[in-house]
Simulated scan of single mutants.
Amino acid sequence: MSIDPLVLLAVAGGGGLGGMARLAVGNLVARYLGVGFPWGTLVVNLSGALLMGLAAGGLGLPGPGAGPAWSLLAIGLLGGYTTVSSFSLQTLTLCQQRRQAAALGYVALTLGTGFAALLAGAWLAGGLP
């Protein structure tokens, strides 16, 4: 299976922009809400889920060989913007600090409201009845 060079370029460019956006949003949220809880990563992941829902609702779910637009937005930009690795590390850090309730709350907030944000984005884009 070969990948269209335009798709590769779209994913690379989107990933770079998404990573920079993640850094900017995470730092901005931390400045206002503090660093005692990983609010920045939570905001990034929830807003990313909402944006992914908007993309899925507006562009439709991708099939095999998704084109450059989906590759740029969903795979590159939002893939670079959201982060499971930071979420996992921050959950472990909360557990190591013996803050199990905060860790469990963080997991529940991220997963539960993340899925709700995805549904809201798809609904706002007209992708859900």
Results as ranks from 00 to 15, higher is better:
1 M>F: 15
1 M>I: 14
2 S>D: 10
2 S>E: 09
3 I>H: 14
4 D>G: 08
8 L>H: 09
9 L>C: 14
9 L>S: 13
9 L>K: 07
10 A>V: 09
11 V>H: 07
13 G>K: 10
15 G>V: 11
15 G>L: 10
15 G>Q: 10
16 G>C: 12
16 G>R: 08
18 G>H: 11
19 G>D: 07
20 M>A: 15
21 A>T: 13
21 A>R: 09
22 R>T: 08
22 R>G: 04
23 L>E: 11
23 L>Y: 15
23 L>Q: 12
25 V>M: 11
25 V>D: 06
26 G>L: 12
26 G>R: 13
28 L>V: 06
31 R>S: 12
32 Y>F: 15
33 L>C: 02
33 L>S: 03
33 L>M: 09
34 G>H: 06
34 G>F: 11
34 G>P: 04
35 V>H: 09
35 V>E: 13
35 V>C: 01
38 P>E: 06
39 W>H: 11
39 W>C: 01
39 W>M: 03
40 G>L: 07
40 G>S: 06
42 L>R: 08
43 V>S: 03
43 V>I: 08
43 V>F: 06
43 V>Q: 00
43 V>H: 04
44 V>I: 15
44 V>G: 03
44 V>E: 08
44 V>D: 07
45 N>F: 08
48 G>W: 06
48 G>H: 06
48 G>V: 12
48 G>F: 07
49 A>Y: 02
49 A>V: 07
50 L>Y: 13
50 L>V: 12
51 L>Q: 01
54 L>K: 07
54 L>M: 10
55 A>S: 09
55 A>Q: 02
57 G>Y: 08
58 G>A: 02
58 G>I: 03
59 L>M: 08
61 L>M: 05
61 L>I: 04
62 P>S: 06
63 G>A: 12
64 P>S: 10
65 G>I: 06
66 A>M: 01
67 G>H: 03
67 G>W: 10
69 A>R: 11
69 A>E: 07
71 S>E: 03
71 S>P: 02
73 L>G: 02
74 A>Q: 02
74 A>L: 02
76 G>P: 04
76 G>W: 08
77 L>C: 00
77 L>S: 00
79 G>W: 01
79 G>Y: 03
80 G>Y: 13
81 Y>N: 00
82 T>K: 03
82 T>L: 04
84 V>P: 00
85 S>H: 09
86 S>K: 00
87 F>D: 05
87 F>G: 01
87 F>Y: 14
88 S>R: 01
89 L>V: 13
89 L>E: 00
91 T>A: 10
92 L>N: 00
92 L>V: 14
92 L>H: 04
93 T>F: 07
94 L>V: 04
94 L>C: 01
96 Q>K: 04
96 Q>R: 13
96 Q>P: 00
97 Q>E: 11
99 R>L: 12
101 A>T: 13
101 A>Y: 09
102 A>L: 12
102 A>C: 03
103 A>C: 07
105 G>I: 13
106 Y>K: 06
106 Y>F: 15
106 Y>T: 06
107 V>D: 05
107 V>E: 07
108 A>Y: 08
110 T>M: 12
112 G>D: 11
112 G>E: 11
113 T>A: 15
114 G>S: 14
114 G>N: 14
114 G>I: 14
114 G>L: 14
115 F>P: 00
115 F>G: 11
117 A>C: 15
118 L>D: 07
120 A>N: 06
120 A>L: 15
121 G>F: 10
121 G>H: 11
121 G>Y: 09
122 A>R: 15
123 W>N: 00
125 A>I: 09
126 G>S: 10
126 G>H: 07
